[in-house]
Amino acid sequence: MNVKYMYSFLAVIVLFLIAYVGTEAVGLQWLFGVLIPYAALLVFVIGFGRRVMSWARSAVPFRIPTTCGQQKTLPWIRPNSIDNPTTTGAVAVRMFLEIVTFRSLFRNTRMKAKADGRITYQLELFLWLGALAFHYAFATVLVRHLRFFMEPVPVPIKLIETLDAFFQFGLPVVYLSGVVLAAAVLYLALRRVFIPTVRYISLANDFFPLFLIFGIAFTGILMRYFAKVDIVGIKALTMGLVTFSFPESEVLKGISGLFYGHLFFVSVLLAYFPFSKLMHLGGIFLSPTRNLTTDTRARRHVNPWNYPVKVHTYEEYEDDFREKMVEAGLPVVKSLEAAAAEKE
C-alpha cells in the first residue's frame, strides 16, 4: 500500500468527518460556516501575496528564455516569433498561449523503446487534455459559484450557468463542469497511481490536492443531485460572509452537515494553496524561461548584482608566456627587454 496516497486519502476523509461531526453533532456551525472560511481566505490572500512577492524579490540576473523555434537573424530566414519571441508583444502571445492553452504540454510525446532497438516518440495528448479539462472545469465551477456570492445574480453568471447546463438533462439540470471536473481529477489521480514513472515521482503533496478537489466536487454533486440541501439557507450564509451580515443561528443550524464538509474542504484548499505546488497559478507568470524576450544579443539585460570577478588579464598572460611568444613570432605588447628592465 502506498503511504503517499493512503495518507492523503485518509486526510481528506478525516477533514470531512471533522466538519460533518463538528456541525451535525457538536453544533459548531459558526466555526465551520463563518470563522474558518474567513481565516482560510485571509491565509490565502496573505500567503499568496507573500509568496509572489518573495519571487519578485529574487533577482532575474540573466535573460534565459528557452528558445523553441527559429531565431530572428537574417532577413530572409523566417523567425518563429512566438516560440522565439523578440518583442514584449510576442512574449505576451507566448505567455497567453502557455497559460490559456498549455502550449508546452501540447508538445508532449511518449517515448517507447521497442524490442527491436527502435526508440519512438509519439504525440501523447492525454495529459494535456486531462489538464485542460480539469482547469477549465474548475474555473467554470468557480465562476458558477458566484451565484452564491452576488445578489442580484448578474446576467453573465446566469449565462454561464445556462451554457454549463446546455444539454438539459437530469434534475436539477446537470452542470457539465462538475462532472468533467470530477472525471478529470479522477484521471489525474489514476495516472499517478498507474503510470510507473509518475507514481514514482508523486508525493503526498500531489495526491492530497487531487483528493481534496475531488472531495469538493463530490460533495457538491451530492448536494445538488442527491442529498439535497437548503439552498436558500446556504445563500443566506454565503451572502452573509461577503456582506458581513449573518443570518440567524437557526438558519445556520438548518443547513446540512454535508454543506459544511464541502465548505471546509474549500477552506482547507484555500489555506493550503499558498504553501503548495498549487502556486504554479502565480508562478507560471514569472517563469524566466518563458516570460522574457529572446533578443539577448540585440538588447542588453542588466544583472542587478553583477559584481567584478578576478580575471587573468592579457598583461598577466603575456608576462607568463612572453619569451615563448616572442620566440614563436607572436606580437607582444611589452618587449622582452622592456619587461626585463621593469623587473629590475
Binding site: 509568496r51 518573495s54 519571487w55 529574487s58 533577482a59 532575474v60 540576473p61 534565459i64 508546452s104 504540454l105 508532449n108 495529459l127 489538464a131 495516472r191 503510470i195 514513472t197 509518475v198 515521482i201 508523486s202 508525493l203 500531489d206 505546488k277 502556486m279 504554479h280 508562478g283 507560471i284 514569472l286 517563469s287 524566466p288 524561461t289 548584482w305
Partner: peptide, 17 residues
C-alpha cells in the same frame, strides 16, 4: 539571486511530462 531557481523550486506539480 536567481528567481528561476526560487520559482522552479516552488511550482513543479510533478506532472511527469
Amino acid at each position: 539571486r536567481f528567481r528561476s531557481f526560487k520559482v522552479f523550486m516552488d511550482i513543479c506539480v510533478r506532472c511527469g511530462a
